[in-house]
């Protein structure tokens, strides 16, 4: 595909810090109007990647193209079309929300009316004249998003915008972000260490682990991996397992539970009939759906890390 098709494209993006590639040969591609979920456990290289996307850090190797232009050559014209919130929000605590926005507004050179516009988008109009240091974390995050929206960006880069928020705050930010492409017409890159957080809003996801991009595709493909399996509770599971194997079913026995992968209704019925015929007592037949979160953990291999 050509350069122009993607709003954001990186090629072989690498950042070497302290003798280690914290970002290694990452090829991101984000299309217009997408909500791109950029996922990875803490320390996987998400923020470092985002810093390079915004020209805050220089790549050791590779390139970053936004709107088909090289960030290293045309940083200022590119940043004019990008709004960002990197990690925890930056603000001047002694200033009010309005004054904070005025600081950025003067640098962007956008009309004064934009301040009221973005304040109403994030519903901070009533609190706009209070010093920001008295804000709750959720309000600070909303102010951060308002700041990012100020220049009417075509691309919005939000790094962990719900980090440290309570469930109500997370819900609020999520609703806000979901509404943005429709109301503001932007493409969004949102990073998170929780798949569940972006799964409801992202159209595409990229998963980064230990600096490597290990998955990048539509969220639907990821969901298809969330295959379900049927768990059987029987009186003699080991004997039942042998029986099922001998009949050609994909059964598995791990000394705790007997499971069968991807069984449709008819197969389940047949299995139950077989078991009952052989005088097994069937206590339970349960469906177990692997959550996206588990797939994510399996992919990033941090399941046992706790």
């Amino acid at each position: 595909m050509s350069n122009q098709a993607w709003i954001l494209e990186t090629r072989g993006l690498t950042k070497r810090l302290g003798g280690k590639n914290v970002v290694n040969e990452v090829n991101l591609a984000i299309g217009k109007g997408e909500i791109y979920g950029f996922l990875g456990p803490n320390g996987a290289g998400k923020t470092t990647t985002i810093r390079m996307l915004l020209g805050l850090a220089k790549p050791t190797k590779g390139s970053v193209h936004l709107f088909g232009r090289d960030i290293r050559k045309e940083r200022i014209p590119i940043l004019r079309k990008v709004g960002s919130l990197v990690e925890y929000p930056s603000y001047y605590g002694h200033l009010t929300a309005k004054e904070n926005l005025e600081v950025v507004r003067r640098l962007l050179g956008v009309p004064r009316s934009r301040i009221d516009d973005v304040l109403s988008v994030v519903r901070l109009t009533k609190e706009a004249d209070r010093a920001v240091k008295g804000y709750s974390l959720g309000m600070k995050q909303r102010l951060g998003i308002a700041t990012a929206l100020l220049g009417q960006p075509e691309l919005l880069v939000l790094d962990e915008p719900t980090n440290g928020l309570d469930p109500a705050g997370i819900q609020e930010i999520r609703e806000l972000i979901k509404s943005l492409p429709a109301t503001q017409g932007v493409t969004i890159l949102i990073s998170s260490h929780l798949l569940s957080e972006v799964e409801q809003m992202a159209t595409r996801v990229g998963i980064i682990d230990k600096g490597n991009l290990i998955y990048q595709d539509g969220i639907r493909m990821l969901r298809e991996r969330a295959k379900s399996r049927i768990r059987f509770g029987v009186s003699e599971p080991e004997a039942a397992w042998r029986l099922l194997l001998s009949h050609g079913y994909e059964a598995a026995w791990d000394r705790h539970q007997l499971t069968v992968e991807r069984a449709d209704d008819r197969t389940v019925a047949a299995i139950v009939t077989q078991l009952v015929r052989q005088n097994h007592q069937v206590y339970r037949v349960e469906e177990e759906t692997a959550s996206l979160e588990r797939i994510f953990l399996e992919m990033t291999g941090t399941e046992g890390s706790l």
Binding site: L56, I76, L79, R80, P89, S90, Y91, G93
Partner: peptide, 18 residues
């Protein structure tokens, strides 16, 4: 210090300014 307090550098420098 005004900038260091909340690391506002990253906000300012992600704006279209040199």
């Amino acid at each position: 210090g005004i900038e260091h307090q909340t690391n506002a550098w990253k906000m300012t420098l992600a704006l279209p300014v040199s």
